[in-house]
Design a protein around this nucleic acid. Structure first.
Lengths: 341, 341
DNA sequence: TCATTTAACTAAACCGGTTTAGTTATTGTT
DNA sequence: AACAATAACTAAACCGGTTTAGTTAAATGA
């Protein structure tokens, strides 16, 4: 079973490569290939199950029908889910997805973008480290189609699909306040990410709006690399009688996971002694002890919209910007036992 | 900033495309390009940051430096983790990964394989639906490099990296028996997958070896599509006084998750009334109530080895089979509270 | 009836690299 | 001095498609 090429088909049917190529690309009619010839070609192709070499096709058409997906970490449930939806939607649209994890390293992200461009992806979906303005700017200057997801550059004028981080946390904070919690701690990751800043700001704004004074506030920023080990100590520190919090809000699902673990180990009763809630969740938050109240991100929408916008951008006339391409999605709020509602 | 091509470099340096190409591919010396010319070329390329078009490169060399990964579902933590390790390892080796989820549909899997072949991937890593012998056989007949992971075809002579499903469950079952549990139920998915069969067999063998009679056994096979809703009813049925089990072993992590949920809802005390354990885990199994004892799969090893074997296969002289390319990895057993140890 | 369209098709250039098969000038050998 | 060997390089073919710019023969128009 040796491989069948366009020229073989042409030879065997006594037509030109051109004819075969045109017919296979649905350009037979407009190029006046007769109905019979078209049928002969299609029949032959079907019979011998011919499929064109995508590299050759891509090379000559200047596009690869491939989109690149760059995310911080495919092993993280949040990104894995997004990847799943991106891939499914892309496939519907006829695109293949190549992906890579940047592990939050700007240099890695930069290399990945370069490498994907070499591989002639037609467009990029990037959840950026947000420390790589240089590459993002370059993409934009070159009118290369791309969409940022989950994280965007607030001072750059790009397409993006993000969630309302501020609003999500504001809602969660308000909920805790409404339940009578007065001393709400906010546990987050040391990070310049705008998304993280917004979550912090949402927390602060909610406290301000409810007139909570300085001593009712406690913000703890853990290091991305050491948060697992730091968590227990931090929790111990803020649950001492002097500066005891009565609620903790975690800015990410993995912080909530470790926070819960630490609280359980210290035998602190949730929600009685300390109520907790999390921004973003993972698949077992409804099964942990106690189930964790969480701000839910619309992962499917993020994935679907990112692809839709990108596809539009890739085909579209670059002059006509039809769709709105800056999207801030609302979050949901899932109340469970951990917040004591 | 318009794109720089090989021919531009050649023109600007007054050398041939050949010279540039050879030097960039580290074939300068063997082709007797003088040291100075080599340096000139390298300096120029570095200065202007030239990188070759991978489609053109792939087309002319007949390889794309890309590997395809086909898994049941990228959103599943298990496969997401494997994908992460596969991608990382592949990148180390200079390969890009394209992936797609088959959602357990053989036809989808078949299409994906075809599509990836069209895209000229150099090799495939497949976690097959195991209902697609036809395509796997064809790959093999054509000497196309591929490695099966997680699931293999027992009657086909292919490369694979799987885990010892039988042994893993045997160990877990024995552990429950040793803890004095006499009526152990086995909850699994209706499936022809050999992996699933092996898990069932491991359970049976362990019972046999310990002389557990027929009424100490209970196997429940749930439907892949409806297990979430069926679980509660099933659990209720086997916890009636007449045929009450004192332990439940779940053949997958998602079954364990739903089983735990159902048991909690029915207010059945774990492990006092019913002990539970799971084959494979998810990231919060140590935080759920109670933490779940689980057979742990070596995800990193699966990913790493799959890539190693595939790369070997892709470069390697097909005549010389150096490495062992059928690998059955041992599982670990993580004891937590749910089994009552 | 002769010029013009049109229908049906194709040769050849092209995409941007790699590779084969040379070429030319210099050095080495006898 | 004559010839082979070698160093340093390049023209052109090639990968497998797409696309442009034609060609040819029949149909139409004035």
């Amino acid at each position: 079973m040796k491989k069948l090429y366009l020229k073989d088909i042409a030879k065997n049917l006594n037509v030109s490569k051109t004819a075969v190529s045109l017919v296979l690309n649905n350009k037979g009619d407009e190029n006046k290939i007769s109905k019979e010839t078209q049928e002969r070609i299609i029949a032959y192709v079907k019979k011998y199950n011919y499929v064109p070499n995508q590299l050759a096709r891509g090379l000559s058409r200047g596009k690869s029908e491939t989109i690149g997906l760059i995310i911080p970490n495919i092993s993280d449930t949040f990104y894995a889910q997004i990847a799943g939806f991106v891939e499914a939607r892309a496939m519907e649209m006829g695109y293949t997805v190549v992906f890579s994890s940047s592990y939050e390293k700007p240099e890695k992200e930069s290399k990945l973008i370069q490498s994907m461009l070499n591989r002639q992806v037609d467009g990029l979906i990037i959840s950026s480290t947000q420390k790589n303005e240089k590459d993002i700017l370059r993409l934009q200057e070159n009118d290369f189609p791309f969409v940022l997801i989950d994280r965007h550059y607030p001072n750059l004028d790009t397409n993006y699909v993000i969630v309302d981080n501020f609003g999500g946390i504001y809602h969660a904070t308000k909920h805790l306040l409404d339940l009578g919690r007065k001393k709400i701690g906010f546990v987050t990751i040391k990070s310049d990410l705008d998304a993280m800043q917004q979550r912090l700001l949402g927390y602060i704004k909610a406290l301000d709006d409810h007139g909570v004074e300085q001593d009712g506030r406690f913000v703890s920023e853990l290091d991305q690399k050491t948060y697992v080990t730091d968590m227990a100590e931090m929790i111990r520190a803020i649950t001492t009688p002097e500066k005891r919090v009565d609620a903790l809000l975690f800015s990410t699902h993995y912080l909530a996971r470790e926070g819960l673990r630490a609280l359980n180990e210290l035998n602190i009763q949730i929600p009685d002694e300390v109520a907790i809630a999390s921004f973003s969740e993972m698949s077992a938050f409804d099964l942990v002890n106690p189930p964790i109240t969480a701000v839910i991100q619309p992962v499917q929408k993020i994935g679907d919209l990112a692809v839709d916008i990108l596809v539009d951008e890739m085909k579209g006339d670059h002059m006509i910007k039809t769709k709105d391409k800056r999207i801030v999605l609302d979050t949901n709020f899932k109340i469970r036992k951990s917040c004591g509602a």
